Amino acid sequence: MHDKTRLLLVDDHAVVREGYRRLLDARPDLAIVGEAGTAREAFEQYRLHAPDVVVLDLGLPDIGGVELIRRLVQRDAGARVLVFTMHREPIFANQALRAGALGYVTKSSPPDELVAAVYRVAARRNVMSRDIAPEFAFALLERSADPLAELSPREFEILRLLLDGHSSEDIGTRLSIAAKTVRNCHYQIKVKLGARSDIELTRTAIRLGLI
């Protein structure tokens, strides 16, 4: 058994990682055992170090944080993930929690809130930062009015990559799935969102605050 709670930090900005590394390293019962700037690096670091808690951003350059969460939980059902991100929209929090994250804290939160969230997730308890908790709760009540809530974490990640302009082939390579599977998901996403074309899909994403 480890004396300290072991953390893996995942953020594509080294300066940002350094900031909360110092914050968390200052706690005598926390230890940073690894850092990563991409999802693939994070997956490898998780395999090597088996950290107690993964603190990760959603905006990663190779695959998104939601997909990374899904893969970590698929590899280890006991993975404890805390999202630390700039995204305040409830849909991002909802997708992260559905993928398997235990906590969600925005980067606009006070430093002590991040520290408290790490301890809470380490204890396998859920946590949501105070600045978005009311909006998130309201969004859950209104879930039937939000078609994005019908998307699975994998579909949400594919939609995010499509909106960023990636081709089916590129998305397939990033997610390690066939391009045909991506195209099938693309079609299902449009069906779920009631979009008859990619133009309508983009307009829907804008209206729902995804972009």
Rank of each mutant, 00 (worst) to 15 (best):
H2L: 15
K4V: 09
R6P: 02
L7D: 02
L9T: 02
H13S: 12
A14V: 14
A14L: 13
A14R: 14
V16E: 08
L23E: 06
L24M: 05
L24A: 08
D25F: 15
D25S: 11
D25M: 13
A26H: 10
A26L: 10
L30M: 02
A31E: 12
I32H: 06
V33M: 05
G34N: 07
E35T: 12
A36G: 03
A39C: 00
R40G: 15
A42F: 09
A50R: 14
A50C: 13
V54T: 08
V55K: 06
L56T: 04
D57N: 00
D57I: 03
L58W: 04
L58G: 08
L60Y: 00
L60R: 00
P61N: 03
I63S: 09
G65T: 03
V66N: 00
L68V: 04
I69T: 09
R70M: 10
R71Y: 11
L72Q: 01
Q74W: 10
R75Y: 13
R75C: 12
A77H: 05
A77R: 09
A77S: 03
A79I: 04
R80M: 07
L82N: 03
L82M: 10
V83R: 03
V83D: 03
M86R: 15
M86Q: 14
E89T: 10
P90R: 05
A93E: 06
Q95I: 06
A96R: 06
A96V: 01
A96G: 06
G100M: 00
L102H: 06
L102E: 01
G103D: 01
G103N: 05
G103H: 00
V105A: 07
T106M: 08
K107H: 05
S108R: 10
S109M: 04
P110I: 03
P110A: 01
D112C: 09
E113I: 02
V115D: 12
V118D: 04
A122V: 03
N126C: 12
N126T: 14
V127G: 03
V127K: 00
V127W: 09
M128Q: 07
D131E: 11
A133D: 07
P134S: 04
E135D: 15
A137L: 11
L141E: 12
L141Q: 14
R143S: 02
A145Y: 02
D146K: 01
P147S: 02
L151G: 02
S152Q: 00
S152W: 01
F156G: 03
L159R: 07
L159A: 08
L159Y: 01
L161I: 05
L163I: 12
L163E: 10
S167I: 02
E169H: 10
G172N: 04
T173G: 14
T173I: 14
T173D: 14
T173Q: 15
S176L: 14
I177F: 03
I177V: 08
A179E: 10
K180C: 09
K180Y: 13
T181W: 04
R183Y: 09
R183N: 11
N184P: 04
C185R: 12
H186E: 02
Y187R: 13
K190F: 07
V191T: 01
K192R: 09
L193M: 01
R196P: 08
R196S: 12
R196A: 14
D198E: 11
D198W: 00
D198H: 06
I199Q: 15
I199L: 15
L201F: 06
L201S: 07
T202M: 15
I206S: 12
I206K: 13
I206M: 13
